[in-house]
């Protein structure tokens, strides 16, 4: 299992050189720290799919002594492992640039990452290979671009919902959101494993 997770680093050795400048770019552009954490987390797991959606890769992995459950588990656990590494690296980069950030930024960035991963990972196994990567990348950029505006727009109009949310304390809200994200992530994992089990290569 660890080997399957480590595989992503071996595959992406060359890309990793662009990783730090990538994070630095977001910091210099004065992006919100939460967005920087989100982007940094996405880098390795989603790059990995550029390889994994190829039929040959699935033939290789499934011919090796791995079960299909393990292959999917490595995907979902790997995303968390790389996310944790990304938190460390991004925090160091932010500190180095003297940019302030809070635990809240980390929590928001990573919850959004896990949510995004949960919603898109299954697509790589459902859709025909070749286009998923582009579709997901574009949808991410669009969401990151207009997502916050939409939320603000909705928050201003749908006061009933905001009033309802405002009734909870901040800590309850964060914990609740965190739990919901984790449940969605687990459901996504189960769903993908179920699909992958039945796939033919």
């Amino acid at each position: 299992m660890v080997n399957l997770i480590r595989r992503d680093v071996i595959l992406q050795k060359k890309y990793l050189l662009t990783y730090i400048p990538f994070i630095v770019f977001f910091i210099i552009m004065e992006s919100h720290p939460a967005l920087t954490f989100l982007v940094a987390s996405i880098f390795i797991p989603f790059n990995a799919f550029a390889y994994d959606e190829k039929a040959e890769t699935n033939i290789l992995l499934n011919s090796l002594p791995y079960t299909r459950k393990e292959i999917i588990a490595a995907r979902y656990l790997g995303a968390i492992v790389y996310m944790v590494l990304a938190i460390g690296l991004t925090s160091l980069a932010l500190l180095a640039f003297g940019e302030p950030f809070t635990m809240k930024d980390i929590a928001i960035g990573n919850s959004l990452f896990l949510l995004f991963a949960a919603l898109t990972f299954p697509l790589f196994y459902i859709l025909k290979s070749g286009h998923t990567f582009t579709v997901v990348l574009l949808s991410f950029l669009i969401l990151a671009g207009i997502g916050p505006q939409i939320v603000i727009f909705l928050a201003e109009r749908l006061t009933a919902i905001t009033d309802f949310i405002a009734r909870f304390s901040v800590s309850t809200l964060y914990t609740g959101a965190g739990v919901i994200v984790m449940v969605i992530y687990a459901l996504s994992w189960g769903f993908t494993a179920f699909i992958y089990q039945r796939k033919a290569f």
Binding site: L11, E56, I59, L60, S63, P65, Y66
Partner: peptide
């Protein structure tokens, strides 16, 4: 699978 060696028609390696 531990005990099988496989060679496919096309290249399956990255």
């Amino acid at each position: 699978k531990e005990r099988i060696g496989f060679v496919y028609d096309g290249n399956v390696f990255f």
